[in-house]
Design a protein around this nucleic acid. Structure first.
Lengths: 98, 98
DNA sequence: GCATTAAACTCTGAAATGCAGAGTAAAAAT
DNA sequence: ATTTTTACTCTGCATTTCAGAGTTTAATGC
C-alpha cells in the first residue's frame, strides 16, 4: 500500500462521524441525537443540514407524543457511509502493513 | 456499546489523517508528502503548522542535496495518533456490535 | 561566474465550515 | 389560561481550510 485512502469530507468530521455511526445503527430523533452526542441545537441542525444537502439523509415527520422528525441515512447515504467505513478499515491496514 | 467514540479534531480531518498515516509509517520530507497527497504548498504548510501547534510534530533540518526539513510525529503525536487509531477501530466495532 | 530555473518553504487573503445562543411555534403541564 | 418545555430554525461570529503569490537559497545552463 503506497498512499493512504481518501475520506469523504461529509463524514470525516468529528461530530458528523459520530452522528452517522448512530444513524447507521438505527433511526434517531433530534433530541435522541442531541442527548447522545451532547451538542447544542444549532450545531446539530447545521450537521443535519449538511448531510441532507449531500443527499445522505432521509427524515420523516412522526406524531408520537409531540410531533417530531426521525432521521436516518438515505439509501445513498448508507452506501456512501459503507465506503467511508471501508476507508477507515484501510487506514488501520495501512499502519499495519506499511 | 452505547455512544460512538470521540475523535481528536487535530487528526480527524481529511488531509491531516492521510498526512499522519504517512508519518506514522515513516518520516517524510515536505515534497515527499506533497507528491503523495497531491496538495498545494500552502495547504500542506497550514496542516503541518496545525500539527506542530498541537505538539504532535517533530521536524529536523537536513542538508541532503538541497537543505530540507524532514517531518515526523513527535512522541506525544505518536501516542495521540495511537489513541486516534483506536477510536477508528472502535467506530468499526460500533457498527458491528450495535 | 552570472543569470535563470527550480526546490523548499512561508505568508496573505478569501471562502467555507463549525458553533452557540437567540428566536419561533406548538404541545404539555400547572 | 398561562407558563414551561420540546423541537427545531436562523443569524452572526470565530475558526479552519485552501490556493496562489512571495521569498530565499541552491543547482544548472551558458
Amino acid at each position: 500500500m503506497k498512499t493512504p485512502p481518501e475520506f469523504d469530507a461529509i463524514f470525516h468530521q468529528p461530530v458528523r462521524t459520530r452522528l452517522c455511526l448512530l444513524l447507521h445503527v438505527k433511526a434517531h430523533s433530534f433530541s435522541e441525537i442531541k442527548t447522545k452526542l451532547k451538542i447544542t441545537d444549532g450545531n446539530l441542525d447545521a450537521h443535519l443540514k449538511k448531510l441532507s444537502a449531500a443527499g445522505y439523509l432521509h427524515s420523516e415527520m412522526v406524531i408520537k407524543n409531540r410531533p417530531q422528525t426521525i432521521y436516518e441515512l438515505s439509501e445513498t447515504g448508507t452506501k456512501a457511509f459503507g465506503k467511508y467505513l471501508a476507508a477507515l478499515q484501510k487506514s488501520l491496514d495501512f499502519t499495519a502493513k506499511s
